[in-house]
């Protein structure tokens, strides 16, 4: 069991305990002939606890063999696997932050302006493109999105409160 699997296992167990407790005491499970609102969630909570324990037991009973020497053939296989680089992790964090900012601004400044800022932010911060290229991509993409959703599909999207 890897470190992340270990954490995930604890999360599953904790979630199971919380769901079972909340379903039993707050939602009420009722009686078998008329199960209450908490009946299925309670069973789900118990199932999560059981699965969490089973997962842990599996990891203890069927331990994976120790990793081969790094000079062996396994090392060659590992090289082919897509490597996670620090830069790509930074990129992911920036992309996540840009997406969260877009969600926060979407209703506040309107769809079009938020989309412009999101695309520009993505090209400059996440992709590190040059200004001119970033502006061209941003304007083209935002205009295409606006045309597709607002004009062709007639989706109701928030407009800028100041402009409207």
């Amino acid at each position: 069991m890897t470190k992340s699997d270990h954490v995930a296992n604890l999360v599953v167990l904790a979630l199971g305990v919380f769901v079972a407790y909340h379903s039993y005491y707050s939602l009420k499970i009722g009686i078998l002939i008329t199960p209450g609102a908490g009946f299925l969630p309670f069973l789900c909570g118990l199932a999560l606890i059981a699965l969490g324990i089973f997962w842990r037991l599996q990891a203890i009973l069927f331990k994976s063999p120790p990793k081969a020497d790094s000079k062996g053939p396994t090392a060659v296989v590992c090289e082919v696997q897509p490597a996670t680089l620090p830069r790509s992790r930074v990129k992911l964090c920036l992309a996540f932050a840009t997406t969260v900012a877009y969600a926060c601004l979407f209703e506040r400044i309107g769809f079009f302006l938020a989309t412009l800022l999101f695309m520009l932010g993505w090209q400059l911060v996440v992709e590190r493109e040059r200004w001119l290229k970033a502006i061209i991509i941003t304007v083209l993409c935002a205009a295409a999105m606006y045309t597709l959703f607002s004009y062709l599909l007639r989706v109701e999207l928030p407009s800028n409160p100041l402009l409207s």
């Binding site: 897509p82 490597a83 996670t84 680089l85 790509s88 992911l92 992309a95």
Partner: peptide, 8 residues
């Protein structure tokens, strides 16, 4: 998308 961004 998040997963692919992290891949090289």
């Amino acid at each position: 998308i998040f997963y692919n961004l992290e891949q090289e």
